[in-house]
Nucleic acid binder design. Structure first.
Lengths: 225, 225
DNA sequence: TCATAAGATGACTCACAAGTCACATTCCGA
DNA sequence: TCGGAATGTGACTTGTGAGTCATCTTATGA
């Protein structure tokens, strides 16, 4: 994991690092609660128990710089999750098993760190369609990093004759995207329990079953062959 | 289509309707350009060639009421698209053909009405994770309407032994969601042409090929059976 | 102990945009 | 032609929050 206090630093620097991280933790919570646009530096400052001005000593770019710092950590965690799910394996473990594993862990990750994930999803979609090329590029880059982490495993599976010879980048993209989709779907349908048509979707509420379903759909398709 | 001028109205009322629609068209453009949060009523008013105050004579709820009015029309159009793709058919046309058709048309729709779609995607994700239950419910309802439009066709396909007996609500959800996903993916990768790793994804840039790919993935899966 | 640097602070400024309302304009029926 | 109803308008009010900076506090080491 990228951050965590580095012991090769002077006490001064370590303390500064700690304070920076405390601010980011506060920002995480506030961004998740209010959404980026309605989050205020004042509230982040208050939650972090610093003055508003102090935040600017740590994040010159203000709110926006804090957002990207938070997003960096989420993407790092997601990347780690994907990489480790497919790591080393694929000799002993099939691609299918690895994917199933990744989905299960992604759901667990979401449950643990809902706050972070919510920021990611909301802001990613907002920025992807913004007209600020730098931001669009940021998300393309992060997205590509994650999709690319899947490629070696896919290539190997093709070589082993385990999966069809499809355009792998597109396949990788779809595998990832459906995890997002599943999580969003679960989040939306869970959020309000009492709502009307609830019987349905329940299949996807148990993490294990959700992972089964997604894996089956993507590996076997819905058609009877 | 829901709106369009109704001829059973007095001229007065028809004119009012026209003005209302002109305002909504202006709002569409501004929302798409700036995003809901950064769009200002002033700019919408200017574009619609009305005074700011006048908008409040037509939309008491101000900006937010305008947003939902715009979203209603997008969802109506999407719903029509889904319904008509699967309509009547499924005796002569297989589910697979219908779905392929829907994907192709969805891509075309996006190309024609990018503005509308962008608003939908950005705001849907933002609001789904807001803590305003009414808004969450709105999106659940609209989403459900679209997913439900697929169900009869799926049920019939199961009855005919064309597709596996999977939880149909979840299948319907996935079929729809992947169209969204494809469109977002195409949008993001198109947006910036010159970008670095572009060779890849190109398969999905031709609408026909993108529809082929998505249909093949979801119906046949990636595994070799 | 004190001088200096490093860090923290929140009242203030400034820009911006939502929503209001008193007044202007246009329409229409008598 | 006239008067009142309907409609339009944008200057103004009000609220908000980002970012600044003069000032205060604390740490350091000479």
């Amino acid at each position: 994991m990228a951050s965590d206090t580095d012991s090769s630093l002077s006490r001064r620097e370590r303390e500064r690092q700690m304070r920076r991280e405390a601010m980011l933790r506060a920002a995480e919570v506030v961004f998740a609660q209010k959404g980026y646009t309605h989050a205020t530096l004042g509230e982040i400052a208050e939650r972090a128990e610093f003055g508003k001005g102090t935040l600017y000593n740590y994040f010159e770019g203000g709110k926006e710089e804090m957002l990207f710092a938070v997003l960096d950590t989420v993407y790092d965690e997601v990347h780690d999750l994907v990489t480790s799910s497919f790591a080393g394996a694929c000799h002993e473990r099939s691609l299918r098993t690895c994917y199933h594993d990744m989905v299960t862990r992604a759901i667990a990750f979401y449950q643990e760190r809902e706050d972070l994930f919510v920021i990611l999803i909301k802001e990613a979609y907002r920025m992807c369609f913004s007209h600020d090329d730098e931001k669009v590029a940021y998300f393309q880059r992060q997205r590509a990093r994650i999709v690319d982490a899947l490629l070696p495993a896919l290539e190997q599976a093709v070589a082993q004759g385990a999966i069809r010879d499809l355009p792998l980048h597109s396949v990788a993209h779809m595998l990832i995207e459906n995890v997002d989709g599943l999580i969003v779907h679960r989040a939306v349908t869970t959020h309000q329990e009492s709502s009307s048509a609830c019987e349905h979707g329940t299949i996807l509420q148990e993490p294990e079953q959700a992972a089964d379903f997604l894996t089956a759909m993507l590996f076997d398709g819905i058609a009877i062959s």
